[in-house]
Design a protein around this nucleic acid. Sequence first.
DNA 1: TCGTACGTAACGAGCGTTCGGTATGTAAGC
DNA 2: GCTTACATACCGAACGCTCGTTACGTACGA
Lengths: 202, 202
Amino acid sequence: MPPAPGDREARRQDVSEAVWRVLADKGFGGLTLRAVAAAMGVSTGMLMHYFPTKRALVAHALDLLERRTAERPRRARPTEGLAALRAMLLDILPLTADDTARNRIWVSSWDLALADESLGRDQADRYTRLRSAIRPHLEAARDHGELPATADPDQLAATAVAFTHGLVVQALFDPARFPPDAQTALLDTFLASIAGPASPSA
Amino acid sequence: MPPAPGDREARRQDVSEAVWRVLADKGFGGLTLRAVAAAMGVSTGMLMHYFPTKRALVAHALDLLERRTAERPRRARPTEGLAALRAMLLDILPLTADDTARNRIWVSSWDLALADESLGRDQADRYTRLRSAIRPHLEAARDHGELPATADPDQLAATAVAFTHGLVVQALFDPARFPPDAQTALLDTFLASIAGPASPSA
DNA sequence: TCGTACGTAACGAGCGTTCGGTATGTAAGC
DNA sequence: GCTTACATACCGAACGCTCGTTACGTACGA
């Protein structure tokens, strides 16, 4: 049923799935129209029906990456404070196959983002937003005595993001050395270290 | 004097310089024979005289990256322990223009490394070596009472590398928000946090 | 009958690579 | 001490291929 009108968005999602598969094992450097078409067993001409240009398809791929990151299943945010921060960072780490694929694609996109000023700004903004999302939990943690009163939430947010993404990269290249429980242990040790001696108050 | 024999290695270094310039602002995705040739004002045929294939040139580029990283000017390693670790990590951070270029190229190379199994192994080995180089300082720090006696040098090495490279990525995308002194302050706060309450001994 | 949804085939550009030609030096023969 | 022979260094043009893109043809549903 070729001219079935209305499932246009469904077709675009089929394309999304193929784009995702290509990105996951070839990276952005290997994202090509023919590769995507081959991955879904169609012609390149079909692709152009839904994405008029490659630039549109790359933009869609980045959208897809951002959307899948935003809509990924997340564990419950238990409370506010350090426990909530822990849940946020665990949701970033490559603990499952899906997380790994998503993180691989993110890291791969940095090559483009570093060479393209506009993409670089987007990435910088994403980091800013991530740090902003983390900061309230750090402020709450400090107010609840989980952190030293002298702790700087801005600095700590940058530090937590740095630790997490640095761990992501190491884990992507050496998954055998960084299985899920090792990553979790590293995160817990890190959180304990920024918490300081031992939570004095409640 | 075209056929000057003997300066063959000098010519290869000229090529290295051009490759570096291309990588620094186009990334590995933009590393092309014509781009390198144009950057040094010669023909592509000349390049093939010194690097028979593009694969050889990419391999050379990665060698160059590793060599320039190994031979970069480094600050004095004051003592052993946390001070030495601080110096090591400061030498990694993008505090100068050269450091920034080198780090950009490293991050850019991850796109290739994630897609190519052999390159991925090399990157994993580099991380292993970096952690191994860090661990002795952490052991010394622990033995000198700069770290809690319960500190795990292996875990801390991975954590320190994670923090540093995660900070590198954030700084590359948002240099305005992470000027050299901000990076240094973040590093010092991080080191103080893993040191725990306050150095009890010595 | 018309418009949408494709496949097929081809285009031009850019890629890595190859090839012939032209200098320029060194080495050998007389 | 010339000339000849040969290797090296390099350019310019071209090759074959793959890329993104376009044009054209066809089949189906409304």
